[in-house]
Structure formats: C-alpha cells, structure tokens
C-alpha cells in the first residue's frame, strides 16, 4: 500500500518533468525541468520497489541503482549543457545574464 503511494508520487513528478520538456522555451530550461523532476521521480519508483519487497535480492538491486542513476543523470546533464553551449545554441529571449560568454571565446 505504501509502495503504491510512493510510486504514484514518482509518476506525478515524471509527468511534471515531461510537461516542462514540452512547455519551456529553450534547451537549457528544458534540461533544468526534465533532469531534476524525472530523476527524482524514477528514484522514488525504485524506492517503491524496495518497500514492496523488503531487503531481499530484488530490493537491494533497486536500492543500488538509485545512486547509479543519480550520478549518471547529473554527469549527463552537465555534459549536455556544456556541449550545447559550445555548439553555439543561443539562450532564450527571456534571459537576463550571460557570464560564460567572455570565457569561451
């Protein structure tokens, strides 16, 4: 029962993250919403698997994949942001500040 509630919360966060992927105007803001919300949502789904089964084989594997997912998602987001800035993609119209410009060229 508790595991179903936690999985529902995780899917709710996934929904909000994917909504942000559709709605936000430029690639940097899309990455902001998608990375944070989808990573936390998937982590809470895996936590739901752990609570549903307890500390047996499947639960321990689900618990171990939480830090794996966490580090791979953050490093991937960092690489994507840096790569898309180096590829010359402009920030959106609403942006107010860009300190990185004089550092690159």
């Amino acid at each position: 029962m508790i595991s179903s509630i936690i999985i529902t919360i995780g899917i709710l966060f996934n929904l909000l993250g994917c909504l942000g992927l559709i709605r936000f105007p430029d690639v940097y803001n899309r990455l902001q919403s998608a990375t944070k919300c989808v990573t936390l949502g998937t982590c809470s789904i895996l936590l739901g698997v752990l609570i549903h089964y307890g500390f047996v084989e499947i639960g321990v594997k689900a618990l171990l994949s939480i830090p794996l997912l966490f580090f791979s998602a953050t490093v991937g987001a960092h690489a994507l942001v840096k790569g898309s800035y180096k590829a010359g993609i402009k920030l959106g119209d609403k942006s107010v500040k860009d300190d990185y410009k004089e550092e690159v060229r």
């Binding site: 966060f13 909000l16 993250g17 909504l19 942000g20 709605r23 936000f24 105007p25 430029d26 940097y28 803001n29 902001q32 919403s33 944070k36 919300c37 936390l40 920030l91 959106g92 609403k94 942006s95 107010v96 500040k97 860009d98 300190d99 990185y100």
Partner: peptide, 26 residues
C-alpha cells in the same frame, strides 16, 4: 533541498505565465 527544488520547478511548470528569468552566473 532536493525535495524543495522539485516543488519549486513543478510550480514554474504548472503556472500559466511561466515565471522564469534564466541566466548564467559566475
């Protein structure tokens, strides 16, 4: 902090006017 962050981003996604002011800081 992570849980607070997610509610903050979720509020900005749902709000109809998209209250964002992005920028790169040093």
């Amino acid at each position: 902090e992570v849980i607070k962050a997610n509610f903050d981003v979720a509020y900005r996604v749902i709000h109809p006017a998209l209250p964002i002011k992005p920028g790169i800081v040093r």
